[in-house]
Structure formats: structure tokens, C-alpha cells
Design a protein around this nucleic acid. Structure first.
Length: 571
DNA sequence: GCCGTTTTCGGCCCGACTGTTTTCAGTCG
């Protein structure tokens, strides 16, 4: 039973209870618990096995702790089974229709016996809905329009995809009449690996003019709302954009509010309440008097906190750290001295080794590792023993030609099912950096998979593990690895784990990165570039590293060349 | 259902927009 499944059960229960009309604070308690569980570094199952006290977790009390144990032990929750008998589970689907919340869904169910999207559609088409109290023709129409958006519900965009749209939109908004500033906030500003919508904050003297300009953007296909200070639209690509316009004096408070995360902001507001203050998007107030709001620094300072970087704002301990002045000094792109994972025409890359070298020089790197694939069934275009000889020779040649950069002889070596590297020792002996990686047999049991990777880590030829969990965001689940065992082995062997910067990998994820750091594990952010231009993906990996609380000293590729040589045993 | 250097009971973040109303409930972020 995975944490995500436990969280899903609580979310489902919350939805059904809310439709039932249960105390909204009780409903919120279930949702808060689900959020806490989703953000957990450890598997609940392991925590229970170790006898840890779950009520220590935020938002988990006696009752919910018991329910968690029940779910983990039995795979289900009797309370949910009971509620399902009272409220049809299919009603949940209706909640995802724009404009339908628990109250209206309950009304539809009790009066017209609507239980799912199909019966809802029929009732709307027969104009039965407009007759209900609290409903009208407009609502009925909106329900019908919202029906075909139902399927697209819940899609999230990779950060890198959202970035492209955000850049376009920002450039467009910069030309809005009377605009002062425009900033993309929300999960985009927090640099989450996926982004559900874009939240954009503008400051302008006349907000209405900016709103009017915004909804005329040529990629807008639907205007959901457009008031005097905020608006929500849907773009062609189904991306939702929320725009908020405030005055300059509220910029900091509004940026904080619009950046979130929701639970981070709620926690701040609670602190303010305890101090007799109130925080909203216009400022920090004592009574009617504004005491802060122009900048985010001011807002945090007003409740006794240091400024918190957006990447940390997830209510996972950053607020306590800000109070104690123990926040990390997050690593930056400028700290990176080199890239230790990339591919060339020697395997499945698009550019030559020399093209990669030249691009790396333009990025001011001190070193790179060229790490083409070893050939296996999974990676057919890779290096065999014979091809490897030419490959290594060319790296050496380029190394003497380009004095301004050091080129490591590397290879991304497939870890076979038994944990052995897919390359002869004779070749491995000649390498500076061999990265072990899993590219096939993803379905092994957690125990076997862990054993397989541990064996690779203990292999003296392997220096690091590339994209350790093998996940592809939205496409492939991570390997079922015992990460604590992995961290232990990596630490003992003096090896490193990679943070892979490919937009759909970002592997390790933020939570595992932070765990790894706490376990004393060395890490490296690498691009796994398959073309020279992709060396610029480093920034995505840095985003992830920052979300994992990493500082410069946690990454080996911030080290100067001499120090790095020592770390990989070549100094 | 959670939580507590004010509290073990009585609070629980805060405001904008829409559509339905005729002063506001429901929804959303």
C-alpha cells in the first residue's frame, strides 16, 4: 500500500462526506491529512513497521492515525465503505465540472436522482436543471459546456512545457496598457516538476484595462471569469491561466499569496492570526492599519520570519527554519562547474562529442563527462567493446585539443537484471566515470530491484547511479526501491546519486533529494543531454535540487576539477 | 477531525467572481 493510495482514500472520503453535507472542518481535516501523506518522505508502511507515532505528523490525530493503520494493514477503510453505501461514488466525477461543488451536486442527486455525468447531461438537455432552487438557465448551460472538458480534468504540464507558454504570455502582458510589473507565480514560481495552471500577477494603476487586454490574448479559447481585478481563462492547449492585478503597494503580499503553496500560505496566515495580525493579498494588517505588503521580504519579516525562497514553500519545515534562521542557502545554476552525463552520435545522441564540448565551453564549464550508452537489448545503438575503443580515443584527442575544459571518459552502463554492468571489465577499467543505470526489467519485485541496484553500487567500476528511480513523469512509475538501503550503500561506497535534469525525468524528485541529503549522500545534477542544446536543461535539474533543499556543497559537480578528481578516485 | 506558552472546548485563512437573487450562497483559488 503506497502513500499515494492512502491519500487517495482520504480524498475520496472527503469528497463523499462533503456531498453528504458533513461538517466542513472535518472534511478539511481529511484533505489536510491527505496532503501531509502525499508530501511524506517515508512510506507509511515502513513508519508503522518501525512503530513510529503517526500523530506526530501535522494534521494527523488519534483517529486518523488509526485509520491509516487500518488502510495500510487491510488495503481499505471501513468508514469509506460505509459512506459509499450512503452516497454514490460516481457523484465525485461531477465535482470536477466547473461550477459544480458539493452543495449543488447534493441538490442534483436528491431532487433529480442524478448520479453520474450521463444522467446529468440528459437532465441538462431536458432543461430540468434550470428549475431547481439556486440553479438557473445560465448554470444549466455552463454545466453542458463543462461536460466535454471533464476528460481533460487533472492534466498537468511538465514544467518545461509550461515554461514555454509562460514566456509567451508574459511577453504579451508586458505590453498591456499601464502595466508596471508582471510575474508568473503559483507552482511555476515554486518550480514544481509539473504545473497544473499558470498564476500570473500584474501590478497596474488601472487593473480593468489589463484584464480586458488579457482576455483578448489570441490563444484564449474560453473566458471562465473576468472581474475588475482577476480573471481566469483557458488557452488552446487546455492550460488554465489565472490573472490577478493589484496596486504596486500590495505587490509583495499579492505575490506571496499567489505563489503559495496553499498550505504554506495558510500556515503563514495562522501565525499572523496568533500575533493579532491578518494577512491577505493586499498586505499584512493590524486592525485597519497596513504594516507590510510592498515586498515579500516585508511580509515574512512582519511575522518574524526570514525570507523563504519560493522553491521551499511547501509547508515542509521551511517556516520553522525561517523562524530559527536555519534555512539552507540554496544552490544556483552559477554554482555548477560541469555536467557528468551526456550522449553523442556514438550512441543515441544527435551531436558529435566535439559539438558537446564546444557547447559546454560556451556554458563556461570546467569539465564534462561524455557518457554514451553501453549496448544492450534495451539500448541498441550503444557502445560495444570494439566501438568503445574508437570512442575513448576520440575523447582523449579532444581532451588535448581543448585545453579550457577537461573531458572525462564516461559511459552510461546498463545494469543487467542480475545487477551486473553490461560492459567488459577491460573497458570499464579505462573509464573515469561509469554511471550505472536501469533501462529494462522495470517490473521486478521491490526486493529484487533493490538487490539489483545495490549490487551495481557495490561494483568498484560504477561511480554513480543515473536517474535512480527510472520514473517518467506521467508515463512510468518509479522503481520500487528501498531507498534507505540505496542511500546507505552509496554513502558507504563514496559513490553518488544523480539528479537527472531531463524535464520528464527529474529523478530523483524533490522529496527523495532531501532525504538523500539528510542521509549524507553525495549528489550530482546532470542533464543526460542527447543534443548540445539540451546541456541547458541544467536549470531544470537545479530547480529540483533547490526544491530538495540542496546547497552548493551537496553537489559534486559544483566542485573545482581537482576536488572532483579526488572524489571519483582519479586525483 | 485537529489543535492548544491564552484554551481539552471552540475555534478552524481569506477574498473575488458568478449567477441567482434582491442581499447572498456557492464555487474557486
Amino acid at each position: 500500500m503506497q502513500n499515494r493510495q492512502v491519500a487517495a482514500i482520504f480524498n475520496e472520503l472527503a469528497d463523499l462526506l462533503e456531498i453528504e453535507g458533513e461538517n466542513p472542518f472535518k472534511v478539511r481535516a481529511y484533505r489536510n491529512a491527505a496532503r501531509t501523506i502525499e508530501g511524506l518522505g517515508d512510506a507509511l508502511e515502513d513508519m508503522i513497521d518501525r512503530g513510529e507515532d503517526l500523530t506526530k505528523l501535522p494534521g494527523i490525530g488519534e483517529d486518523l492515525a488509526e485509520k491509516i493503520v487500518e488502510i495500510v494493514r487491510t488495503g481499505k477503510l471501513s468508514k469509506l465503505e460505509e459512506v459509499r453505501k450512503e452516497v454514490p461514488d460516481s457523484l465525485r466525477a461531477l465535482l470536477s465540472i466547473e461550477g459544480l461543488g458539493p452543495k449543488r451536486v447534493k441538490t442534483l442527486w436528491e431532487t433529480l436522482h442524478i448520479t453520474d455525468p450521463d444522467t446529468l447531461k440528459k437532465a441538462a438537455e431536458e432543461h430540468k436543471i434550470r428549475e431547481l432552487p439556486g440553479f438557473g438557465p445560465k448554470t444549466e448551460e455552463n454545466i453542458l459546456k463543462g461536460m466535454h472538458l471533464l476528460k481533460q480534468e487533472g492534466i498537468r504540464f511538465l514544467f518545461a512545457e509550461a515554461e514555454a507558454y509562460a514566456i509567451d504570455l508574459k511577453a504579451f502582458l508586458q505590453k498591456a496598457p499601464g502595466l508596471h510589473t508582471v510575474e508568473v507565480a503559483g507552482s511555476f514560481r515554486r518550480r514544481k516538476e509539473t504545473v497544473g495552471d499558470l498564476d500570473i500577477l500584474c501590478t497596474a494603476a488601472e487593473p480593468q484595462k489589463v484584464i480586458n487586454y488579457f482576455i483578448a490574448y489570441d490563444k484564449v479559447v474560453k473566458v471562465i471569469s473576468a472581474g475588475s481585478t482577476r480573471s481566469t481563462v483557458i488557452l488552446q492547449n487546455a492550460l488554465q491561466v489565472d490573472l490577478r492585478v493589484v496596486e504596486q503597494k500590495s505587490y509583495g503580499a499579492a505575490l506571496q499569496y499567489f505563489t503559495g503553496s496553499k498550505s504554506h500560505s495558510i500556515a503563514l496566515r495562522k501565525i499572523a492570526v496568533d500575533m493579532g495580525l491578518k494577512i491577505n493579498e493586499y498586505g499584512v494588517f493590524r486592525g485597519d492599519k497596513v504594516i507590510a505588503g510592498k515586498t515579500e521580504e516585508e511580509v515574512y519579516a512582519s511575522i518574524g520570519l526570514r525570507y523563504i525562497e519560493p522553491e521551499l514553500r511547501e509547508n515542509r519545515g521551511e517556516i520553522e527554519a525561517a523562524r530559527d534562521d536555519t534555512l539552507p542557502r540554496l544552490v544556483t545554476l552559477e554554482d555548477i562547474r560541469g555536467d557528468l552525463h551526456m550522449h553523442t552520435t556514438y550512441s543515441d545522441g544527435l551531436d558529435t562529442i566535439e559539438a558537446m564540448v564546444q557547447k559546454a565551453i560556451s556554458l563556461n564549464y570546467d569539465y564534462i563527462a561524455v557518457t554514451d550508452h553501453s549496448a544492450t537489448l534495451a539500448v541498441v545503438k550503444g557502445l560495444d567493446t570494439k566501438k568503445a575503443a574508437a570512442y575513448l580515443e576520440e575523447i582523449e584527442k579532444l581532451n588535448s585539443r581543448y585545453e579550457e575544459i577537461h573531458i572525462f571518459k564516461g559511459m552510461e552502463v546498463d545494469i543487467l537484471e542480475e545487477g551486473k554492468p553490461a560492459m567488459d571489465d577491460a573497458v570499464l577499467d579505462k573509464l573515469d566515470i561509469a554511471l550505472g543505470a536501469v533501462h529494462a526489467n522495470f517490473k521486478l519485485s521491490g526486493k529484487e530491484q533493490t538487490k539489483r541496484v545495490l549490487k551495481a553500487i557495490r561494483n568498484p567500476h560504477i561511480k554513480g547511479i543515473a536517474h535512480p528511480t527510472g520514473r517518467l513523469i506521467g508515463k512510468r512509475e518509479p522503481l520500487d526501491l528501498d531507498m534507505d538501503e540505496i542511500y546507505k550503500a552509496i554513502r558507504e561506497e563514496g559513490k553518488f546519486l544523480e539528479i537527472n535534469a531531463q524535464p520528464e525525468r527529474l529523478d530523483l524528485n524533490d522529496i527523495l533529494i532531501r532525504e538523500a541529503k539528510e542521509a549524507g549522500v553525495m549528489l550530482a545534477v546532470n542533464t543526460d543531454a542527447h543534443a548540445a542544446g539540451q546541456l541547458e536543461y541544467m536549470r531544470y535539474g537545479i530547480n529540483q535540487a533547490r526544491r530538495g533543499w540542496l546547497e552548493k556543497g551537496d553537489l559534486i559537480n559544483t566542485l573545482p576539477l581537482g576536488k572532483l578528481l579526488q572524489v571519483i578516485g582519479k586525483g
